[in-house]
Design a protein around this nucleic acid. Structure first.
Length: 836
DNA sequence: AGTTTAGTGATTTTT
DNA sequence: TCACTAAACT
């Protein structure tokens, strides 16, 4: 490989000075050593070969191999709690310390900003902070932006393009749907935004989407609408999140020379959470990582197939399973030594996840065994209210320090406890309970700061000041606060701007010079235009914090909330102050906007001691001493919809979710299920989750019933099983999958369920001989979308449990369009019908 | 134009 | 049930 960075002008801005020109492989960057805190030590160590540099000590042999095998493709399968982040950061430190690359020659990709931040901090600690940042460490999206800003013109954009968030996208699509003369009620913009997102996750441009998909929306105009959307983005000089990946991919494909330059630049590539990559990210990565034959591909992907829980939003576990094929001669390193959890927790999680097929197969172990370690506990409660009450009590007990074996009297901080739920509606009951108990709690992953109305309004003002062509921002705030610029005026402006292909703010500036508008709106519009002119001028001269404040004051936006008498108004004003405070960390308003468009989360208050409540999904990557896992009931967990829509692979993803949940626990894990839960307002009796049957007896205890209730299908007269009802089908709330399961139930499964319902709670959780066979009704419901040819053909007469008899009029994958005799035309999943 | 009412739909979520 | 959205009032 040759080093030709000096010849590439646009790299100049961040490259090391010429004197520190990177070395060819094998050579050492002598000059660079001075800039790297640990480099000298590392090089000294290399001289004496035997003694390892400090940062390598304390790694186990597998971790150490993952760190030291820097050249060639490496796949690190890092189980939960096996020191994954440590390996990644140490590996980067090692590459730097041994002088194999400069910080600017390492591409390190994460999924979330949080992970990126954490990695930066930890590398800083290892390397002694001497390496100021790594320019190419970030999320897929933030690196995508960086690439795209440099080469925007190759994607038909200007480099100051704006990044639209979901809200903007939906509004834009709505406009397009209306412009097409379509009914925006029949074709919801939100749904189409979701479809576009799905396509972009798969790397599909309008020309690439499957015909069926294209026809399924907007009277068959799906493809045209998608294309119109892309065209509109271009004229707006804007990107959505998907474009941040797709544009670079397109650029690299059509400009091989440019790609080559990046190949030379990125000597080492690292990817975190590889199991979560979607097809677009995978394409992006392959472009950057795959090298011509004979050139080493120094790519290291770290992930855990057992923690892949984002399949529903396009993640492809296949990417990790396929790594060895994609990168020839790949070294696969498994990290299985767990530093987080007790053997009971690991044993439980391991036994559960072993029920999945199609995994690479790891078994976590620990040798830190303590006789005081508590087994995983399974508890039953009558209903969700009791579940919340009992968990609340347990939390208070732990907080007081009662009855914690091995740590008598020691208090358990609330910060080290978490309740992990499958669906966010479950949180409410806990919140209600904790409010009455006066127990501090913190909900993680709720509505986010930057998604709040007032924040988005304020941001729209800032956006328009920095980017006068931002029509979406213009439309958002032109009449907020009320200025008497109603629909008619805005529509007129819109049409005027579109006709001349100019931004709306420009259109407004033109129009106020004419007498097209009535005096009132004209005056109002004139004032707004003047204000924006003013603010834009101050952009360079006024400190951005002051300017932000002035904008919100002068526009009347803060006054609007001050005048508002509603309960939330003071909070909103507070949020606006917080917004301005948070701008302090940035150099300019533009810098701030860039950050916010990519970082939608805001920091949480860490000082408060509080129990965390969050979904299982947002718990990935976290750990707690004590974890509560409520709601392990069929239909909720595994979720019925995952079963209906994902079939067996859906079930397996749910099981991985359960695995993620259990492995968050360091010392204590309490699983709960209830016999009755309110779903959509109606009480439903529920069955214990099949996952409970998949837990190993050796590591699990079932709690004795804490009340007279509890337990499932008891003979004591409580907890009626559905089978006791005169007609289990009568309940209109039972789901299609459930009905189907009922309809197709074989004798074997009937026995299975029958026996379960007869067991007392002490038995729940165990079959007669450990874990039972895999799926029960997972197989009875819809088959996976994946390439299963339909067993039906057009014209077939079929029966649907809800809609009755009908004829198939079209088939797309596993979706059938059926003309029902009574119910009319419906699209249903193949799994829900049978031959009539 | 702002408020009231009817309708709807209801996992998981980052960027 | 309940929360959010769109249209129908006043």
């Amino acid at each position: 490989m040759t080093n030709s960075f000096d010849d590439i002008p646009f790299f100049g801005d961040e490259d090391e000075p010429a004197a520190r020109k990177p070395q060819a492989p094998g050579e050492r960057p002598q000059a660079a050593a001075g800039g790297l805190g640990i480099a000298a030590r590392a090089m000294a160590a290399r001289g004496g070969q035997r003694e390892a540099p400090d940062y390598l000590s304390g790694l186990n042999p597998e971790q150490r191999e993952a760190v030291e095998k820097t050249d060639g493709p490496v796949l690190v399968l890092a189980g939960a709690g096996t020191g994954k982040t440590r390996v990644l950061t140490t590996r980067i430190a090692h590459i730097l310390a041994t002088g194999k690359a400069f910080p600017s020659q390492i591409l390190a990709v994460t999924f979330t900003n949080k992970a990126a931040r954490e990695m930066k901090e930890r590398i800083g600690m290892l390397v002694g902070g001497a390496v100021e940042g790594m320019p190419w460490l970030g999320t897929f999206h933030s690196i995508g932006v960086k690439l795209l800003r440099r080469h925007a013109e190759l994607a038909g954009l200007r480099s100051n393009f704006t990044i639209l968030d979901t809200d903007d996208v939906v509004r834009l699509i709505k406009q397009l749907i209306q412009a097409e003369g379509l009914d925006d009620k029949r074709w919801p913009a939100k749904q189409f935004a979701g479809m576009i997102d799905t396509w972009k996750n798969k790397g599909l441009l309008p020309a690439d989407i499957p015909e069926g998909d294209a026809r399924a929306f907007a009277n068959g105009k799906g493809r045209e609408l998608y294309a119109a959307y892309q065209a509109r983005l271009r004229t707006l000089n804007a990107c959505d999140f998907g474009d941040l990946l797709l544009h670079p991919i397109a650029i690299f494909r059509k400009t091989p020379d440019l790609l080559k330059e990046y190949h030379q630049r990125f000597r080492y590539i690292l990817v975190d959470e590889y199991q979560d990559t979607n097809t677009a990210q995978y394409m992006w990565l392959r472009l950057l990582a795959q090298r011509p034959q004979g050139v080493p591909q120094n790519v290291c992907c770290v992930g855990d197939d057992d923690q892949s829980i984002y399949g529903w939003r396009g993640a492809e576990v296949d990417n990790i399973l396929r790594f060895e094929k994609d990168f020839h001669g790949a070294k696969v390193i498994k990290l299985e030594r767990n530093y987080r959890s007790t053997e009971h927790i690991l044993g439980t999680a391991g036994h559960l996840i072993a029920h999945n097929e199609g995994r690479l197969g790891k078994t976590l172990f620990t040798d830190r065994v303590n006789p005081d370690d508590e087994k995983v506990m399974v508890h039953a409660a009558w209903d969700s209210e009791e579940e919340a009450r009992a968990i609340g009590e347990e939390i208070e007990r732990l907080q007081r320090g009662d009855g914690i074996p091995g740590s008598e009297g020691k208090k358990h901080a609330l910060n080290d406890m978490a309740i992990l739920v499958r669906a966010s509606f479950q949180m409410r009951e806990f919140e209600d309970r904790f409010v009455t108990l006066g127990l501090n709690y913190r909900v993680i992953g709720g509505p986010r700061f930057y998604e709040r109305l007032e924040i988005r309004d304020a941001m729209a003002y800032f956006r328009l000041v920095c980017q006068p062509a931002d029509d979406l921002a213009f439309e958002r705030i032109i009449n907020t606060p009320k200025r008497g610029l109603g629909d008619t005026t805005i529509r007129y402006l819109h049409d005027y701007a579109r006709a001349r292909d100019i931004p709306m703010l420009q259109a407004a500036a033109d129009i106020v010079e004419t007498d097209e508008l009535k005096p009132k709106p004209r005056k109002a519009l004139f004032d707004v235009v003047q204000s924006f002119r003013n603010w834009s001028q101050r952009l360079e001269s006024t400190p951005h914090l002051d300017l932000a404040e002035q904008i919100l004051e002068e526009s009347g936006y803060t006054d609007m909330w001050k005048a508002d008498k509603s309960a939330e108004a003071p909070g909103r004003l507070e949020n606006l102050k917080e917004l301005i405070r948070s701008m302090e960390a940035f150099e300019s308003m533009r810098g701030f906007l860039e950050h916010v468009s990519l970082v939608m989360d805001a920091e949480q208050n860490e000082n408060l001691d509080a129990v965390s409540i969050m979904t299982l999904h947002s718990a990935k990557g976290l750990e707690f001493d004590t974890v509560f896992l409520p709601g392990w009931e069929e239909g909720l967990f595994p979720h019925q919809r995952a079963l209906d829509e994902g079939g067996r692979s859906g079930l397996e993803e749910e099981r991985r979710l359960a695995y993620v949940g259990i492995t968050r626990a360091k010392r204590r894990c309490h699983i709960w299920f209830v016999s009755n839960r309110r779903i959509h307002g109606l009480w439903q009796s529920t069955m214990p989750s099949r996952f409970l049957d998949e837990l190993p007896q050796a590591h699990v205890d079932v709690a004795a019933s804490e009340t007279n209730y509890g337990g499932y299908g008891g003979r004591g007269g409580y907890g009626q099983s559905r089978f006791d009802k005169a007609d289990p089908f009568a309940n209109s709330y039972s789901t299609p999958g459930w009905k189907r399961a009922q309809a197709n139930k074989t004798d074997a499964t009937r026995d299975n369920w029958g026996s379960r319902s007869g067991h007392s709670i002490e038995r729940i959780g165990y079959g007669e001989s450990g874990p039972r066979g895999r799926t029960i009704d997972g197989e009875l419901v819809a088959k996976s979308v994946a390439d299963v040819p339909s067993q039906f053909s057009v014209g077939d007469r079929v029966f649907h449990i809800k809609f009755g008899n009908g004829n198939i009029s079209a088939i797309e994958g596993n979706k059938l369009t059926i003309d029902f005799d009574r119910a009319g035309q419906k699209r249903v999943l193949e799994g829900f019908v049978e031959r009539a």
